[in-house]
């Protein structure tokens, strides 16, 4: 084999590897969006590598991140889970705080204030309730400070591409986390006669909490296998 041929082969393999990385992140983010309760078609989530490359490649055969973006609507079940139950004092509760989600992969060696601002502006211009930004590099600290600044208009979450290569919730050591609705939460607290601060806690920065997009005050039911009891459920409050 000539050295030129060798060089070309090397390049192609490196390109294949990059494509496969992006495909895995793409799969994981779709599974995440689906697990949160947004509507996605099964073939969208379980896309094969070859289909993915075919759909997103540019002229050179490499996958271009510029085309890797999608939106999804919340399902009825999800709306139900986030709804605010009517009470005596407040018979007309506000509508559930969920809406269309927008996911975008960002290209570039660095992500600064300007990228974040344009992303936030795009979200509010198109009325997206939540935005997920996936970058291959770390976001600068001052760009992250924009997230709380625009929190009143739109909810921004950021993920690192590297963290999405595997779906952590599929690992056998990660128990199943189920988000409780507000009604279920109050039923739980009434059943055990607790205040919510008396529950065990889970941090908002916890990887699974980030995967599920938990908000402060929500309760997750964690179901793990137990050698003695078969299944064991515990509850954690997101702080």
């Amino acid at each position: 084999m000539s050295s030129e041929q060798d060089q070309i082969n090397k390049q192609r393999e490196a390109g294949d590897r990059d494509n496969a990385r992006l495909w895995r992140a793409w799969r994981t983010i779709h599974e995440m969006v689906q697990d949160r309760g947004y509507i996605l078609a099964e073939e969208e989530v379980k896309i094969s590598l070859s289909d993915f490359v075919k759909a997103h490649r540019d002229g050179s055969g490499m996958v271009s991140k510029a085309s890797m973006k999608f939106s999804a609507h919340p399902s009825d079940a999800m709306m139900q889970r986030y709804s605010n139950p009517a009470t005596e004092s407040n018979p007309n509760p506000p509508p559930p705080d969920v809406g269309t989600i927008w996911v975008e992969f960002l290209e570039g060696d660095n992500v600064g204030i300007k990228h974040m601002r344009t992303f936030a502006q795009y979200l509010s211009a198109h009325n997206f309730h939540t935005g997920i930004l996936i970058t291959s590099v770390n976001i600068t600290p001052s760009a992250l400070k924009i997230i709380p600044a625009v929190a009143s208009e739109t909810r921004i979450e950021t993920f690192n591409e590297q963290d999405l290569l595997v779906n952590i919730t599929h690992h056998e050591l990660v128990p199943k986390h189920v988000l409780l609705s507000k009604e279920e939460k109050s039923a739980l607290l009434a059943r055990y006669r607790l205040k919510d601060t008396q529950l065990p806690r889970i941090q908002m920065t916890d990887p699974v909490a980030r995967y599920l997009g938990l908000r402060r005050g929500q309760v997750v039911k964690i179901i793990r296998k137990s050698e003695t009891a078969g299944r064991y459920a515990s509850y954690r409050l997101c702080v």
Binding site: N110, G112, I113, K114, P141, S142
Partner: peptide
């Protein structure tokens, strides 16, 4: 440290 952030942000541009 804020000033360092400013330098980083300017360099990104």
């Amino acid at each position: 440290s804020d000033y360092d952030d400013l330098i980083v942000e300017r360099n990104i541009g």
